[in-house]
């Protein structure tokens, strides 16, 4: 366990292994996401109350779940940066922050599109929607702070502290619908209970969720590889990789 953890400290090792894994993430993710989306959007039964407009759930729930998970991953990497000073953790945060920003935006956007026909409004300042908007700003803040500081090491530490500060928002997003009165309904997927929808609905939803997570894994790998190449451009293994294509 510790040995694996220490190996992660070597960007070269990660670069080599991620080039092998990344294509599998992409194929697996695309397969699951396309199956889940087509099944959910075209074949799953309609909802008794909302008709077809509920189908946006097959995009909204995966993006909303991933938006929060990515932030938790970033905060965990932030702890690693602060405690172990591992370069790769910082590379991860830098590589995935823009992905998280886009995914959060998608979650908010699909939520608004869903809210108009069902609730009757695009936006309402309830606890769930507001805390999700704060998450979007946190991603923006992480990206901006990282760009604002030139020195790589100081930037890494500042960003790590910011991700840790922001992670307090995650339980607020998660439990906002239970702690306060909100317009947003409670969670569709709960870890402890069976989903409150029939299998023809939750299976495609689960497939899309898993698919999106795998695609995120692929994106994270590819973006981290780019970042590693930029940072290590003076090292010998990168020069060798560029000329021979081998790590």
């Amino acid at each position: 366990m510790w040995q694996f953890f220490h190996k992660l400290g070597s960007p070269k090792w990660f670069f080599g292994i991620s080039t092998r894994f990344a294509p599998w993430f992409l194929t697996g993710g695309m397969l699951l996401l396309v199956t889940g989306a087509v099944w959910g959007l075209a074949f799953a039964p309609t909802d008794y109350l909302q008709g077809d407009s509920y189908r946006i759930i097959f995009i909204h729930v995966p993006t909303a779940m991933l938006a929060q998970s990515v932030y938790i991953m970033m905060a965990s990497a932030g702890v690693v940066t602060l405690v172990w000073r591992m370069k790769l953790a910082d590379v991860f945060v830098k590589a995935v922050a823009p992905v998280g920003l886009v995914i959060t935006f998608l979650a908010l956007f699909t939520g608004a599109v869903w809210g108009k026909p069902t609730w009757g409004t695009w936006w309402i300042w309830d606890a769930r929607l507001t805390s999700m908007l704060i998450l979007l700003f946190l991603y923006g803040g992480v990206i901006a702070l990282d760009r604002a500081i030139n020195d790589e090491k100081s930037a890494a530490r500042a960003v790590a502290v910011l991700t840790l500060v922001g992670v307090v928002n995650i339980p607020i997003i998660k439990y906002s619908v239970e702690w306060w009165n909100t317009l947003h309904q409670p969670a569709t997927f709960k870890l402890t209970e069976k989903p409150s929808m029939p299998a023809e609905m939750w299976v495609p939803l689960l497939l899309s969720v898993l698919g999106l997570y795998l695609i995120f894994g692929w994106l994270a790998c590819v973006r981290m590889q780019t970042e590693i190449l930029c940072r290590e451009q003076r090292s010998r293994w990168v020069k060798e990789f560029v000329t021979t294509g081998r790590v």
Binding site: D47, T118, Q185, P186, A187, M197, E200, M201
Partner: peptide, 13 residues
């Protein structure tokens, strides 16, 4: 203004 609220129980008609 009146907004509708729905719950997390989705089911076929």
């Amino acid at each position: 203004q009146v907004l509708a609220k729905h719950d997390e129980n989705y089911m076929p008609p």
